[in-house]
Write a protein that binds this DNA or RNA. Structure first.
Length: 552
DNA sequence: GCCGTTTTCGGCCCGACTGTTTTCAGTCG
């Protein structure tokens, strides 16, 4: 089955190749735009095509792209891409990821020397041949050589949780410097994306030059890439890129908006400004030469007739339209969480104490069927001891590819919640059947865990007909879990939005194996916010009495 | 390739920076 992600990948690949070929850049943009729309869509394109939906109704998809999508869904391939691939060597695409090399220069190099691989490029650069090309000076060539070396590192994204500590430490470090008034970390970090490419730090300060000097002396800086009058870039010891930018107080809101992104969101906002006869850049909102807004983000949004849109929503996934219609979600907050329903920690007493510390009203401790009755006795005893928190006995069953389940009735009567977790065999391609069978044949299962099976940067989403599953889940009151483990965040933001649109309730659990991993729940909340989730969509934001009715 | 309440052509977000030139193209975010 062709997933949205797969279609998106095909279009972006096509765009890369077209760019090198020297096609009209706006045409290339149309493909990239379509790729983004499809990947972010809350609808399954495979399904839309099969239902005969008129794809040209979607903004950004016209007559041609609509036909191409149909071709990809029905044949699994894209003839245009195949043709491009036969004309343009793969090595050229790799060259695009070298800092300083874009499509024009790659094409220039290829046309002149027929260089098709990075290795060949390195030889040419070293031999001095590249100097012959117009526009290629010693500095650019040095940059290319350096870029080839660093290529492996380039493009890696860090888990949000991995950069969080550094980011907050840097924030404190800069705030301590005399004359620094504001430090804010923008970019995908502020949008709470599951992975972050680099850190964009904005600073309002009396004397930027001094702050910049102080910044590049940060203990973890390995390399200073550039240090200018308004911008400095460094690499840290773990290869994380950090940009520091000087911002004036009067432009702070415009700059924060601009550098928070996403790019797609910014472009939409700017288009809107143009329609209103305004111009937006990182310094402010302008009517002619007159600056009419810029000090705060609220002002910037207000100038184009919008309300403040929370950073997590800024992906051009319908947030602007929702704002106009007054239908922006009131996003869930960490404080709304009343309990964690899937904790696999060994030490029960320590778990309960931690849950109380976290202010939880209830905590679900999970075990597999083996020795479950013995575990239940222990929980009953602890419940006597800790009356301030409600303890739930959670049974986890692993669904293999055969969906055979054999659970003792005694156990079923004892547990408060049964969670099915999927253990997909990587060799299989479509797991929809297994999930459907689990829902239909085992009515005692109320929570589905690891539905997509993804591990960030390692294992992609399983190929499942998510809309079908969500429909069934809504009908059968099945809850879908968001595993807050920052390496997983399964299900993803886009899927959370799709689940909620299908009236499916979600549950954010830490899946903690160690006590301190219970703190990971916040990452699940961030992901849920990116998936437009409100308090009412999340069962562990509910009082215990209401929750009981949903999981019982 | 998409789009249109100046609608079937002619636009398409916008500015900084870099390195190369000598007024600007390419790249980047």
């Amino acid at each position: 089955m062709i997933t949205n992600k797969k279609i998106a990948q095909i279009f972006s690949k096509t765009a890369d190749l077209m760019e090198i070929k020297g096609e009209n850049p706006f045409k290339v943009r149309a493909y990239r735009n379509a790729a983004r729309i499809i990947e972010n869509s809350s609808k399954d394109f495979n399904k839309l095509v099969k239902e005969g939906f008129d794809l040209t109704r979607l903004p950004g998809i016209g007559k041609d792209l609509s036909e191409y999508i149909k071709e990809i869904v029905t044949t699994g391939e894209f003839s245009k891409l195949k043709e491009l691939q036969s004309q343009i060597p793969q090595g050229l695409v790799e060259m695009l990821s070298i800092e300083g090399l874009g499509p024009k220069r790659v094409k220039q190099i290829y046309d002149a020397f027929k260089v098709t691989s990075l290795e060949e490029l390195r030889k040419f650069a070293n031999s001095g041949k590249l100097d012959e090309l117009p526009g290629f000076g010693p500095k650019l060539i040095e940059k290319i050589l350096k870029g080839i070396k660093q290529l492996k590192k380039a493009g890696i994204r860090f888990l949000y949780s991995d950069v969080e500590e550094i980011a907050e430490d840097l924030r404190k470090y800069l705030l301590n410097f005399p004359g620094v008034e504001v430090v804010e970390i923008a970019g995908s970090y502020r949008r709470k994306k599951e992975s972050v490419g680099d850190l964009d730090i904005l600073v309002v300060a009396k004397d930027y030059a001094k702050v910049s000097e102080f910044f590049v002396k940060y203990k973890r800086v390995k390399e200073i890439y550039s240090a200018g009058l308004t911008r400095s870039t460094v690499f840290l010891d773990n290869d994380l890129q950090v940009d520091l930018r000087a911002v004036s107080k009067e432009s702070y809101g415009a700059a924060l908006h601009y550098f928070t992104g996403s790019k797609a969101h910014n472009i939409e906002i700017r288009k809107r400004a143009i329609d209103l006869g305004l111009k937006i850049n990182e310094y402010g909102v302008y009517k002619g030469d007159k600056k009419i807004a810029g000090e705060s983000e609220e002002e910037v949004y207000k100038s184009v007739g919008l309300c403040l849109i929370e950073p997590e929503l800024r992906e051009n996934r319908g947030e602007i339209e929702a704002c106009i219609d007054g239908k922006l979600p009131k996003l869930v907050n960490l404080e709304d969480i009343k309990g964690d329903l899937n904790v696999k920690t060994k030490n029960i007493k320590a778990t309960i104490k931690k849950a109380i510390d976290l202010g939880y009203k209830y905590i679900g401790i999970t075990r597999k069927a083996k020795n479950f009755l013995n575990f239940c006795n222990k929980i009953d005893n602890y419940q006597e001891e800790f009356k301030e928190i409600k303890l739930l006995k959670v049974l986890e069953i692993e669904v293999g590819t055969d969906t055979k389940l054999d659970i003792d009735n005694k156990i079923l009567r004892q547990c408060d919640l049964i969670v099915a977790t999927f253990n997909f065999d990587e060799s299989q391609t479509d797991y929809t059947d297994i999930v459907v069978k689990t829902i239909k044949n085992y009515p005692f299962v109320t929570l589905l865990s690891h539905l997509s099976g993804r591990i960030i940067n390692q294992r992609p989403l399983a190929s499942v007909d998510y809309d079908l599953i969500f429909e069934l889940a809504a009908k059968n009151n099945i809850i879908i879990e968001v595993d807050a483990n920052p390496k997983r965040l399964d299900i993803s933001d886009v899927l959370i939005k799709r689940a909620i649109l299908n009236n499916v309730k979600i549950c954010i659990n830490s899946n903690a194996k160690l006590i301190n991993e219970m703190d990971n729940l916040k990452y699940g909340v961030y992901q849920a916010r990116r998936g437009w989730a409100e308090k009412k969509d999340i069962i562990n934001c509910m009082e215990f009495s209401k929750l009981k009715g949903l999981i019982g």
